[in-house]
Design a protein around this nucleic acid. Structure first.
Length: 482
RNA sequence: GGCGCUAUCGUCUAGAGGCCCAGGACACAGCCCUCUCAAGGCUGGUACACGGGUUCGAAUCCCGUUAGCGCUACCA
């Protein structure tokens, strides 16, 4: 089994967007495939006709692609495999491992309700619904609807889980579950096993919520005469309140993070570290390192809380270390959305100026926009406070700065010369460097935080910088009491 | 209720019997650097759920308790 080439699969059902939990499961499968030189198969489990949509399928594929998770085979659609599912059910029926059950859903529901009302656990009893051969033949001939149930063996159903170690269930604790509906379509557990066998899947890496399906599936593999794959059940992802991550917790879809300006590489790195650790103190890892270090056994057995603050920190790390060329497309897209044109400027220089102080592409684009377009300047709280605190000195500083800067020719408008000029002006007027710089920063950006002021001036440009300083001077004069 | 999984700082985790009166990262506080902030550096607080064993020795092994989570459908 384990000596045959590794084949793993990610099998989402297209009934919603690509959840971060699903994305992480996909990532683990992908990492394992890449690590072992195996094959990563994508299978869409669209057998729930009611809830599955093509739009969801598309979003899932886009999400995976965005994360850089590429698949080697597929996407296959489970719905197309129903003839094989049915054939497998028939085989089980023929071999006596499964049987027809004529109990209707209504009858069963009624019994269940009764049991619950009486406060006792409900169990499906095989004997309770058993029919004599004659009776079964009669109802079959009459065309009565029936489902096919799997006769769960009274035996231990155990496996060596790659993340949890040995897990064991007793067959007698499991009900005879339905494998084929009365309309002839397969139920999940049969469909999955049938597909995984047909696709020669060697390692089933999936969410923890499938642990209790596994004994049923193992019994099915055995009854179908197929070798068992290795199972690896990865724990759930929780919200900050310790509950399973859901819409209530805000962003849960991969697309949400894309919209918030998270870089795919950062998202991938963060997701990989959620429930898995390479050991030691490593945090920021390249895709290659992730692949090289990955192992199923190092996956954590307990659920992990999704910490947005750490994601953003991680994203900031990537933002700082990613070149402007690479950041240009997402920033341009965002500027576009904001309705800000590049005006023939080299946006890459602006990206380099602002990326170290941004945690998301959104923040970065906002900073680029301010440097591009004066109309986006809005005094923030700290800037207001500074201006108030400095009083007339604020305007005076600007006047000093303007004087020194105007003396510079366009050719002299370089970071070095700018720093020199401002320093000199500050000295001659007895100003502290900070008192000379901060008002300029506020005039140029509306905030008290930015790259060094001389670099800011250089990147905004001579005419534009001077215009912004003059505008700020005018503004402070208006605000000053008569 | 039954069955199963899990249990180290607020969060992500390192730790596979002595190296641990528990290490790193995020977050938080302070300091340094500095025109501001970020980055970087330094410092600080906070954790082995509880109770029994086993052992010369337990965060690490065993049992129990408690808690959280999952499953318990003609959903996937």
């Amino acid at each position: 089994m384990t000596d045959s080439p590794v084949r793993v699969r990610f099998a989402p059902s297209p009934t919603g967007y690509l959840h971060v939990g699903g994305a992480r499961t996909a990532l683990f499968n992908w990492l394992y495939a890449r690590k072992t030189g195996g094959t990563f198969v994508l299978r869409i489990e669209d057998t729930d006709q009611e809830r599955s949509t093509d739009a969801h399928t598309r979003v899932i594929l886009e999400g995976l692609t965005w994360l850089g998770i590429n698949w080697d085979e597929g996407p296959y659609f489970q719905g197309a495999e129903s003839p094989r599912h049915r054939a497998d059910a028939e085989r089980l029926l023929a071999s006596g491992r499964a049987y027809r059950c004529f109990a209707s859903a209504e009858e069963l529901d009624a019994e269940r309700k009764l049991a619950v009302a009486a406060g006792r656990p409900y169990r499906y009893e095989r004997a309770r619904w058993a029919l004599s051969p004659e009776e079964e033949a009669r109802r079959l001939a009459a065309g009565d609807p029936f489902v096919i149930r799997f006769a769960v063996p009274d035996a231990e159903l155990a496996w060596e889980d790659a993340v949890h170690g040995r897990i064991s269930f007793q067959g007698r604790d499991l009900d005879d579950f339905v494998i084929l509906r009365s309309d002839g379509s397969a139920i999940y557990n049969l469909a999955v096993v049938s597909d995984d066998i047909a696709m020669r899947i060697t390692h089933v890496i999936r969410g923890d919520d499938h642990v209790s399906n596994t004994p049923k599936q193992i019994a099915l593999y055995q009854a179908l005469g197929a070798a068992l794959p290795v199972f690896a059940h990865v724990p759930m992802i929780l919200g900050t309140d310790g509950k399973k991550l859901s819409k209530r917790h805000g962003a849960t879809a991969v697309g949400d993070y894309q919209d918030q300006g998270i870089l795919p590489a950062a998202m991938r790195n963060f997701l990989a570290l959620l429930g898995w650790s390479p050991g030691g103190d490593r945090e920021v890892l390249t895709g290659e390192e992730l692949v090289g270090l990955f192992s199923l056994e190092a996956i954590q057995g307990k659920p992990a809380v999704f910490d947005t603050a750490k994601l953003e920190w991680m994203n900031g790390q990537y933002l700082s270390h990613t070149g402007a060329d690479e950041l240009l497309p997402p920033v341009m897209r965002q500027l576009d959305r904001m309705g800000v044109g590049a005006k023939g400027r080299d946006v890459r220089a602006l990206i380099d100026a602002a990326k170290a102080r941004s945690r998301t592409v959104l923040q970065l684009a906002e900073q680029v926009a301010v440097r591009l377009d004066a109309s986006r300047i809005v005094l923030d709280e700290k800037a207001e406070k500074l201006q108030k605190k400095m009083g007339p000195a604020f305007g005076a500083s600007l006047t000093v700065a303007a004087g020194a800067l105007e003396a510079l020719t366009p050719a002299e408008w370089t970071p070095d010369r700018l720093l020199e000029a401002v320093k000199h002006a500050a000295e001659t007027h007895g100003l502290k460097l900070g008192d000379a710089m901060q008002p300029v920063r506020v005039a140029l950006t509306g905030g008290t935080v930015s790259e060094p002021v001389n670099e800011l001036l250089a990147v905004v440009g001579r005419d534009e910088s001077l215009a912004r300083i003059r505008a700020a001077m005018a503004r402070t004069q208006d605000a000053a009491p008569a």
